[in-house]
């Protein structure tokens, strides 16, 4: 029986409104669901190389972040494999520079995550503040739903928490 090895990594800066949606997403995921063994959730914030320890040698890495891709604000996108690295190199903030480098560094150490998926949501407002914009908030549940679908497709059994 294959055991799960999944990391859901939410990154971004919660002090810059929509920039922090990745962190908000993993917080919500953890708050809403019981997760099985083998599924780890990490709030990566704006960390850079410290994340190397978490991502190296993973079977499945799911990253969640605000991604500017010329779509309507609130649009949820899914990016896979090599396209994840190129997407991050169109960085909108210094923290994405960090992730891009960390993924490259994992190649250098010879232990890149084997399956890489990115869920992004197009931001509207990157100003200072703790709240998400209306457009991003309106599509927040959709973002969570996409992550849950992805986890389910990998064989993860999630159950809703009672509260």
């Amino acid at each position: 029986m294959a055991s799960l090895d999944v990391l859901v990594l939410g990154i971004g800066n919660i002090l810059l409104k929509d920039e922090g949606v990745g962190v908000r997403a993993v917080e919500a995921l953890e708050g809403r669901y019981h997760l099985p063994d083998g599924v780890e959730i990490v709030d990566g914030g704006t960390a850079g190389f410290e994340l190397l320890g978490y991502i190296r040698d993973r079977e499945h890495l799911i990253v969640v972040d605000a991604i500017a891709h010329d779509q309507k604000p609130g649009t949820v996108i899914r990016v896979e494999g090599e396209d994840v690295r190129t997407t991050f190199s169109q960085r909108i903030s210094p923290h994405q520079l960090g992730i891009s480098d960390v993924l490259a560094a994992s190649l250098v150490t010879g232990e890149p995550p084997r399956n890489l998926v990115l869920f992004g949501i197009e931001p509207k407002d990157l100003d200072t503040g703790l709240e998400l914009s209306e457009e991003v908030s309106a599509n927040f549940d959709k973002l969570i739903h996409c992550i849950v679908e992805e986890l389910t497709s990998l064989g993860c059994k999630l159950s809703l928490r009672s509260n």
Partner: peptide, 11 residues
């Protein structure tokens, strides 16, 4: 912004 093409799927 560089003109790098990456493939994304709109959900």
């Amino acid at each position: 912004k560089k003109n790098i093409i990456s493939k994304v799927k709109v959900m």
